[in-house]
Amino acid sequence: MWPIIQIELFKIYKRPRTYIAFGAIAALILVIQMGLKIDGEAYAAFLMKDINDTLTVDGKVLNGYLICYILLQLLLVHVPLLVALIAADMLSGEANLGTLRLLFTTPYSRTQWVLAKFVAASLYTILLLIWLAFLALFLSMWIFGTDDLFLMKSNYVVLIQEQDVFWRYLGAFVFASFSLLTVAALGFLMSSLANNSIGPIVATISAIVFFTILSTLNIPLFNIVKPYLFTTHMNNWKEFFDIQVNDSNDAITGSILNVAKIKNSIIILAIHIALFVGASVWIMKKKDILS
């Protein structure tokens, strides 16, 4: 199957649309970094308004680690839309172009093609994430330096020691890859249902927006389904940045508050990926190629 994965990767590499997402991420990150470099202290002061009533925070709060966290908070909501641009076009785009019949008349089976295309879309997604990590984490570390990570959550503040932060980002990026692969798989499923490019992209984005709203609304009826929605779990990369405390309220270095929550989210996302891709394979196997 490797030759067809190579072909799919080569096509992604040659498509101009591929670079829109990379460009968009770079532009967004650089603009935010520039803004925070110029006026970051005011932003930090605004965030720390409440805490400054009680405590004096001394040190480089606005360091590369915090900048990366801010960027991920903002971008991991939007990157799925960029992933959908490619993933939701993988099958339907070729159907629209008419090239699907070129591929499906080769000796490789439809299952192999669909899986190869998903692998290629996944590699693209992961490359996008690596690009995001490079800009959001490493570039921020270079521009803003590093220090302890001072995170202001809704009800409490977490101060993670500098040497205890980097591995958390690695974990968060691995987790985020599951989130984005779920989006890629959803886009892929939508793509298998249509013969045009725009429909599946819009449908994927709409589904993400719809389920995200369901996930954030605190209505008892929705609370029943919330634990099973992929959008409920997509943002749980943040769990890597919450820390356990001992009986004396000392944060335990190297700990994660809720490991079970992360595991549960990964399992649910993995189930979604398997279901979406499985359904795509089934649909494409049954489908008559009329385009």
Partner: peptide, 28 residues
């Protein structure tokens, strides 16, 4: 089997050389 089905639909962003190189990989 070699086939051409209706319209000559190809990848507009690839060259003829790239098309043939890619499809050459698909054969045993």
């Amino acid at each position: 089997i070699g086939a051409v089905i209706e319209r000559p639909d190809l990848y507009p962003y690839l060259t003829a050389q790239e098309h043939l190189t890619l499809f050459a990989k698909l054969r045993k």
